[in-house]
């Protein structure tokens, strides 16, 4: 598949501080790439360099400039005195690629009324975010950059966003999403880059077809202790996850079938709440790197 973005050996220094260090990244047509990392990891700076508002100290960024890029910045950037349609008309006048009818269609697509004459400054945060999405996609860019796109969106808005991004990806748009919300990233993205301290620590393919690990939730801390001992005894790696509704939870990295694991755990007297194959677990991967990087989770 053709790449719509190539980032090579990108480094950004501000005075002596290294913000990004030797970042290499690419996004293909129709691919959704998630950028996750702690605050100050360099996610937003990376998006700003790609969008051109921050210059890299070294390295290169390539994308098809004629196709343009769509951006949803972390903060809604709008002309507050104007209504939604006027805002988009103004912005679209720069490239002159689309007309009013296409703008109205885009507004409808993101769930906004094109005939609403209310000034944008009176919009709710969620409506502003939808409008930002509309301005980003209205000219059908090949590359879309979204910085915390679920900010201020209500649950319905998040579902709409997920569906919209999926449609755009199917139409060939390459998308980068920077977010703190692991669940959302996991649901929306095909691939995830974990970024910390300005470095890409690891890229995880969330749509991998390889055999997947097993997530198991047990009833009590006592069951968890037995599970740990069992895992050690059969030389299976067990990675602890954050508890689910207070129930201990973890990932077993094994090629055993789920039925076999259930049978063995039951034999060991462990009370299982739930067990299933999972894809590459983003939380597990993230926590693994968070620990390596001195994160708060221990």
């Amino acid at each position: 598949m053709n790449e719509v973005l190539q980032v090579k050996s990108l480094t950004k220094r501000v005075k002596q501080k290294v913000i990004l260090q030797d970042v290499n990244l690419s996004v293909s047509e129709g691919e959704i790439l998630g950028l996750i990392g702690p605050n100050g990891a360099g996610k937003t700076t990376l998006l700003k360099i790609v969008s051109g508002v921050v210059r890299a100290s070294s390295g290169s960024v390539w994308f098809d400039k004629s196709a343009g890029i769509g951006i949803v910045p972390e903060q809604a950037a709008l002309l507050g005195d104007m209504d939604a349609l006027q805002n988009l008309r103004m912005l679209s006048s720069i490239r002159g690629k689309i007309g009013t009818s296409e703008i109205k269609q885009t507004l409808k697509r993101v769930g906004l009324d094109p005939d609403n004459k209310k000034a944008v400054r009176n919009y709710s945060l969620g409506m502003k975010q939808r409008l930002m999405l509309a301005q980003a996609i209205m000219e059908h860019p090949k590359l879309l950059l979204l910085d915390e796109p679920t900010n201020a969106l209500d649950p319905l808005g998040i579902i709409d966003l997920r569906m919209l991004l999926s449609e755009l990806a199917q139409a060939g748009t390459g998308i980068i999403i920077a977010s703190h919300l692991l669940n959302e990233i996991e649901r929306m993205c095909d691939r995830v880059a974990i970024i910390s301290g300005g470095k890409i620590l690891r890229q995880v393919n969330l749509r991998s077809t390889e055999q997947t690990p097993i997530e198991v939730t047990v009833s009590t801390a006592y069951d968890w202790d037995i599970l740990k001992r069992w895992a050690e005894s059969v030389h299976v790696e067990l990675q602890k996850l954050t508890p689910n509704k207070g129930l201990p939870r973890g990932i077993l990295k094994t090629k055993m079938a789920v039925s076999q694991v259930i049978s063995e755990l039951q034999s060991a007297g462990i009370a299982i709440e739930s067990i299933s194959h999972v894809g590459p677990n983003l939380e597990a991967v993230f926590l693994e790197y968070a620990q390596l990087e001195g994160g708060v989770y221990r």
């Binding site: 969008s51 051109g52 343009g68 769509g70």
Partner: peptide
């Protein structure tokens, strides 16, 4: 500004 720059 980032929106304007994104328009090329």
């Amino acid at each position: 500004l980032s929106l304007i720059f994104s328009k090329g």
